[in-house]
């Protein structure tokens, strides 16, 4: 077994998924952490990676890597995996992670499993499909087991290690795609939607006023989500949509405000550990899946809950 973990990072600062994937990968024994970035990113990330028990850290560095969304990353990664005889690759199941995984699968002629919520020591992946209504165990039968793992699937467990970073700078062939302009999203200090341990979402019932949703989210350190009705109306960006054609989230706590709970919305949040809803319609289908539901006006219930929690927190 030779398990590789693709380390997600922003300019050398690793994201939460890195610790989660290393924790899963350690079950199989030796783990190689691979990071792809611009020169210097590997050194910057080393200490953080070493807090999750890597046996080897390899940084593939190229100054043009960020000018090409995923094709170049996949090239460097695929060649390294073949050269080192990798048997398993874990990648975070994010939009970018899946693009990279798809490309690596073709380049190495390997099978791929996406959106795993768990992976055993012998690379059997657990997938939760159809909005959590079925659990599937699958395995890759050809090539390297390329498995994308959903953020938040395990609690990262720290384990100190002390490896140096091996930096490689292979010659990568650029694609014909040119990026002419970049408008980075305003982060606003809130956690990333799929990584957050609490998500507070608003729907059509907010009538476009997300202020009470955001106030509770900020108090709880939560991410803000939205239903398709809310993103279609332009109240919140599409990247915040939860559901069948949006993000799948699985936080410890999901709070749905003014969301009816259509099957396509539930498909993206049903595996949350605790679900709470506020809706003025007692018959709203969202109440079929809630642990705690409040039938009422979100503009009254949310501010009251927010101040009660703030008061308790002191």
């Amino acid at each position: 077994m030779s398990t590789f973990v693709f380390i997600d990072h922003i300019d050398g600062a690793i994201t939460k998924t890195a610790g989660e994937l290393l924790t899963i990968a350690r079950r199989a024994g030796e783990v190689t952490a691979v990071l792809v970035g611009t020169p210097g990113d590997g050194t910057k990330a080393a200490a953080a990676i070493n807090s999750f028990g890597a046996n080897k850290i390899i940084a593939i560095e190229d100054s043009a890597i960020n000018d090409h969304p995923s094709a170049l990353v996949a090239q460097g990664l695929a060649d390294l995996l073949l050269e080192k005889g990798a048997t398993t690759l874990l990648i975070p199941s994010t939009a970018r992670g899946k693009e990279i995984a798809a490309r690596v699968a073709v380049r190495t002629n390997s099978g791929i499993i996406t959106d795993a919520v768990d992976v055993t020591a012998d690379s059997i992946a657990t997938q939760s499909i159809f909005g959590g209504s079925a659990v599937v165990h699958s395995k890759v039968s050809k090539g390297i087991a390329i498995i994308t793992v959903r953020p938040n699937s395990v609690e990262p467990e720290s384990k100190p290690s002390t490896c140096d970073v091996e930096v490689v700078s292979p010659k990568l062939t650029p694609t014909k795609v040119l990026i002419s302009n970049r408008e980075p999203a305003k982060r606003g200090g809130r956690p990333e939607l799929t990584e957050a341990s609490i998500v507070v979402s608003g729907g059509r019932g907010t009538n476009g006023d997300f202020a009470p949703v955001e106030a509770l989210a900020d108090l709880l350190g939560a991410a803000v989500g939205a239903s398709r009705a809310a993103t279609d109306a332009g109240w919140y960006p599409h990247s915040h949509q939860v559901g069948q054609t949006g993000k799948t989230v699985s936080p410890s706590l999901y709070i749905a405000c003014g969301i009816s709970g259509a099957i396509q919305h539930r498909a993206g949040m049903q595996t949350s550990k605790v679900i709470v809803a506020i809706n003025k319609d007692p018959e709203a289908p969202i109440f079929e899946v809630t642990d705690f539901g409040v039938v009422g006006d979100l503009f009254a219930v949310l501010p009251q809950a927010t101040s009660a929690i703030a008061a308790r927190k002191g």
Binding site: G111, S133, V135, I275, E288, F292, G296, A300
Partner: peptide, 29 residues
């Protein structure tokens, strides 16, 4: 290139507590 070993259906989530807001819904939450 990949195969399903086995699968099982998950029990549907069951509805929990539902309170009606009569002025203290937020506090209850």
């Amino acid at each position: 290139w990949s195969l399903v070993n086995d699968f099982n259906e998950q029990a549907a989530r069951s509805a929990g507590v539902k309170v009606t807001d009569e002025g203290a819904g937020g506090t209850a939450l």
